[in-house]
Design a binder for these strands. Structure first.
Length: 727
DNA sequence: CCTCATTGAGTTTTT
DNA sequence: CTCAATGAGG
């Protein structure tokens, strides 16, 4: 019989078979970290007679947790359903559903996604009369999430300035409103689960004695609250097996704290730190480039990837005059890769920000190459789906003001802004939900009649749905709400109605596949046969897995995504485009603490996605926000060893050839000025260093140019005095 | 109350 | 440029 441990290298084997004690596994890119995680779980169950229910395995994405379950299922003859393998949010949701009473939540509590949350923040701010010019709702949302992720409620926050004081008032009112409506945001799922365990000793003891082994994937991405939750579950006796890579920490901007790795070593007196440094993914040149780049970072735990594989090809570097040319180059190369037999789905086009996908898409579309963009609008975030979900939320819990506001006048039934304001005033006056205000006939007159119609509609749906199974229930709501009819008559409604049908399918799939895992927790109150519980579980699924339900996923298509979205994936050939100062590294990250280091890690992640071939490209000029912008090549290009690279265009494009005119457009205002310098030209200044000319004006003694310096920023220079040299 | 036009802002993002 | 959010007019 084939052993679980066959084919593991010594480090992997050591990690998999560690005794029951906390350990940190530093797993480099492509070093087989998922294999180690899943094999350890299987090994514990098979060789150490650990019950599958004694394992808690946490990941960040649904995809990763599904992958883990699939692999465990392939290794062991057990039913993985019901195992506690999931995302932080998914597992907290599960815990809160099972103990909603102890957690102070209604049985049918709903989960707000970011958009729902922002809407609620805005609503609260309006109620508090907060000036949204001085206090932008987005920032308030960011503040609230930041506090929660650090483990703080509004009552515990010590505001340091006026802005924070105001935001904290919003925070407090927001949480009160959430409680009244019976809704929780993503961060609240974690905070509430943490509070539940820390306050409820019997429950804590119960889970602590159950989860003898806790395994954490992508540990470098945990935030303070997630770490605290893990510590609570670990208690004194349980072992945490943390797998992570500090070099791939790219979510610092949203609260991930690499410091948790050091804290973990200290707090858990970790004796075994195992480094997985053998890379099974990339050719030598690619790996060397990645190593050279990341060695520039100061804050590292230290790790050097190596491969037994051959050196492979050099990295191909291309400098294009414009973003359009860059896209054209990429399309040409893609075509030849496809001709050579590389599968389209094995080719990835990566970029730093989503806005950059447009040019690439345009070029690919014109060339007739099938592609798929990740990170677009997700299924459960589509307008029509959100509307249907809002009706479903009203069925599950009519106190949900957010859901009510979304659909009270959709499809239009004559309830305008004024009527809604009246309703909100009434709700505020009685301290009740909008639904109760509406039922109580708080608004009179013509508007009252319309509102009454809405109340009867929702009441009708609620009674009619009482005995229905989930898929029928969804069908009934989609039709009974009038959404179907509404989109039937709208001109672009056909696709929307297809998505509504797809929602019914999603509900049917959910029932057969997912629901029973959530039910029947010991000590819990969730009954899988209770239709309300089923509906709540489905709605939670919709919030927590917004992205997973995508059409046309399986087809052979080129993969377009941001570098962030590419983490964890690998491809035969990878293009990293837009390697320009200001874009990658991004301007907005440069002034942040360690911002450049995080950008560099991002670049490291990008490089290490490639197995065999890696293209790096940049453009001298680029359309950004409707304007032509000129950027210097990214510093990251200079940080890669020249010996590993092949500049494939050196002969084709002279350094300061004017960008060719685009057909149908006036030529970029580059060439025509009297200063003797060209916009877009790279220059050197004795004091300010490297820069690029952004604009130029005047002549003779008045001639001056505006230069964007990499380090010194934007400057106007009088050419009579400035010692500018071409670079 | 609804539709069209103007204005303004615009990293990365999973849950 | 392109989307979202406001404001004027039907």
């Amino acid at each position: 019989m084939r052993s679980l441990l066959d084919g593991l290298n010594p480090q992997q084997l050591a990690a998999v078979t560690l005794p029951r004690e906390s350990a940190l596994i530093l797993a480099g890119a492509g070093s087989g970290k998922t294999r180690v995680l899943t094999t350890r779980i299987a090994w514990l169950i098979q060789e150490k007679q650990l019950s599958p229910m004694g394992v808690l395995a946490v990941t960040f994405t649904n995809k990763a947790s599904r992958e883990m379950l699939t692999r465990i299922g392939a290794m062991l003859p057990i039913n993985t359903r019901g195992m506690w393998v999931g995302t932080f949010h998914g597992l907290c949701n599960r815990m809160l559903r099972a103990h909603h009473r102890e957690a102070g939540l209604p049985q049918a509590f709903q989960i707000l996604d970011s958009a729902d949350q922002l809407a609620l923040v805005k609503r609260v701010m309006r109620a508090l009369n907060v000036d949204d010019e001085r206090y932008p709702p987005r920032q308030a949302q960011w503040f609230i999430n930041g506090q929660k992720e650090a483990g703080w409620r509004a009552s515990a926050v010590m505001p340091t300035d006026d802005l924070e004081r105001r935001f904290n008032e919003v925070f407090e009112a927001y949480d009160r409103q959430c409680q009244q409506e019976g809704v929780v945001d993503f961060a609240e799922l974690l905070l509430r689960a943490y509070d539940l365990l820390s306050r409820n000793e019997p429950l804590r003891v119960h889970y602590q004695s159950r989860f003898q082994h806790i395994l954490v994937d992508e540990f470098q991405d945990t935030n303070k609250l997630q770490y605290a939750w893990l510590k609570l579950l670990a208690g004194r006796d349980n072992a945490i097996f943390a797998v992570g890579d500090d070099d791939q920490s790219i979510y610092g901007f949203r609260g991930a704290d690499v410091g948790n790795m050091a804290a973990f070593e200290r707090d858990f007196a970790v004796r075994h730190v195992i480094k997985l440094e053998q890379n099974y993914r990339s050719h030598g040149n690619i790996l060397d480039a990645a190593n050279a780049l990341i060695s520039r970072n100061r804050e590292r735990l230290g790790k050097n990837l190596w491969t037994a594989d051959e050196r492979g090809e050099p990295l191909r570097v291309y400098e294009a005059p414009t973003d359009t040319d860059e896209a054209g180059f990429i399309v040409d190369e893609v075509k030849s890769l496809l001709r050579e037999g590389t599968s389209a789905s094995e080719i990835a086009l990566l970029y730093r920000s989503n806005a950059q996908s447009r040019v690439l898409e345009h070029a690919l579309f014109s060339a007739g190459i099938p592609y798929r963009v990740y990170g677009g609008l997700r299924f459960f975030e589509r307008q029509e789906v959100k509307h249907a979900l809002a009706y479903l939320r009203m069925v599950a819990n009519p106190e949900d003001d957010g859901a009510l506001l979304r659909v009270i006048n959709f499809p239009a039934r004559g309830i305008g802004a004024r009527s809604i304001e009246h309703l909100q005033e009434a709700g505020r006056a009685r301290g009740s939900s909008l639904w109760q205000a509406a039922c109580g006939g708080a608004v009179t007159g013509k508007a009252g009649t319309a509102i009454g119609g809405f109340v009867r509609l929702v009441d009708g749906l609620r009674t009619q749905c009482a005995g229905l199974k989930l898929p029928e229930l969804v069908t009934h709501v989609v039709e009974g709400s009038g959404l179907k009819d509404h989109y039937q008559t709208e001109k672009d409604g056909a696709e929307r109605n297809e998505n509504l049908d797809e929602l019914v399918n999603a509900a049917a799939t959910f029932v057969t596949e997912a629901i029973y895992e959530a039910g029947a927790e010991e000590g819990g109150t969730t009954d899988p046969n209770d239709p309300l519980a089923a509906l709540s579980a489905f709605l939670a699924h919709a919030s927590l897995e917004a992205g997973e339900h995508q059409a046309g996923a399986g087809q052979a298509a080129l993969q377009l995504m941001t570098v962030h979205a590419a983490k964890g994936l690998e491809f035969q050939a990878v293009f990293i485009s837009g390697l320009e100062e200001g874009l990658f590294p991004h301007d907005n990250s440069l002034d942040e603490n360690e911002g450049v280091e995080e950008e560099r890690r991002l670049m490291y992640v990008a490089i290490t996605r490639a197995r065999r071939r890696l293209y790096l490209s940049h453009a001298q000029s680029r359309m950004l926000h409707g304007q032509t912008r000129y950027h210097l090549p990214s510093r990251f290009l200079e940080e890669l060893p020249e010996a590993l690279m092949k500049r494939i265009n050196a002969s084709r494009v002279a350094p300061w050839a004017p960008p060719p005119a685009r057909t149908g457009f006036p030529p970029p205002m580059a060439s025509r000025n009297d200063t003797g310098w060209r916009v877009g030209q790279n220059v050197m200044h004795p004091k300010f260093g490297a820069g690029v000319i952004v604009s130029a004006e005047g002549r003779g003694a008045d001639a001056r140019v505006q230069v964007n310096f990499r380090d010194a920023g934007l400057k106007w220079l009088a050419l009579e005095y400035a010692k500018l040299t071409p670079a």
